[in-house]
Nucleic acid binder design. Sequence first.
DNA 1: GTCTATATGCAGATAGAC
DNA 2: GTCTATCTGCATATAGAC
Lengths: 193, 193
Amino acid sequence: MTAEARRILIEAAQELYAANGVAATTPREVLARSGVGQGSLYHHFPSKRDLAAAAVAQTVDDTLGSAAATLDGADEPERRIADYLERPRAATAGCRVGRLTADPVVMGDETLRGEVSRYFAELIELVARAFTEQGLDAAAARDRATTAVAVIQGGYVLSRALGDDAAMRAAVRGLLELLEPAPTGPDERSRHE
Amino acid sequence: MTAEARRILIEAAQELYAANGVAATTPREVLARSGVGQGSLYHHFPSKRDLAAAAVAQTVDDTLGSAAATLDGADEPERRIADYLERPRAATAGCRVGRLTADPVVMGDETLRGEVSRYFAELIELVARAFTEQGLDAAAARDRATTAVAVIQGGYVLSRALGDDAAMRAAVRGLLELLEPAPTGPDERSRHE
DNA sequence: GTCTATATGCAGATAGAC
DNA sequence: GTCTATCTGCATATAGAC
């Protein structure tokens, strides 16, 4: 059971951070949600930052792993990119990682900031690889991957701001429309009329 | 001088919110930065939310006005859109409005959330108008405008996460590359080799 | 490892004089 | 309108027993 409380605390913190961020999540809330006692919390995590470091690293690993499962798949690169962009998302909840860029506790701590940076560096790299497989040169693939990841992050911001998942879907549709090669078959035309 | 303290307080709050968000900005900090006394603060703004409502509304008005100046200009729509996308931005600082979508105080207050929502609704509308002028139908223009605004918001998130303004520039380059019509002249080809 | 008790300091005001 | 004094409650731990 010794590692159990630790794991439970991390999970509770991850959920609270996803909802309210790190700065706004208090030790009391973590205790209440986890059901663990105060002594255990401060035994496993001497300070709030220690808990945050563990929970954020876990969230980054989880999220990157799930993105890699789609982007490193066996399908055609076009398909993998589209699958990644169109993946169902709780957009109005915001991105668990992206929202941390606005969190003063995260940005004020080198370790936490490093986790957020690692997430996006690796995610852009994953997407860029797929664009490279499509035949783009390295520089163009990197730019386009940055654009694609930005559309998702911006989609989260817009969905949250407007209180509607439709914003994320519109942003993704707009990008996919631009990514599609000019229609080759006559029956592919005029999707918009 | 009666309205003077009020204005000074709003300006100080705007700057602090841009740096740290609303939730993390304390009355003490606003007092210190503004040089105004505590009595004045609570005279003009009975609660923290009242100050936030005034300061956020001001920021939204300022920022929308500056975007409209570019997007409603007299140039060709292509040019106005490119100018808006390429406008110099302190990207690692984050978007003053977009970052508020991760702020628990803002999202927990209907008035404040309404200001953020108004900002993005109007901004998307401004951009969509330019795309419509380019000849896109209303639905396609709206999607593409949402994509464009998402690229900027995502560019802020990525620049902040990676600690580098280059991420914003890459995201914008990637989008502009997609927006450019297929090269018509032979000397326009192979920009990337 | 986990518990309960206790401590410090600041957030976010309120009160009443000037 | 602005000032200073004061107040309540919670964030964030620390201490020491079990």
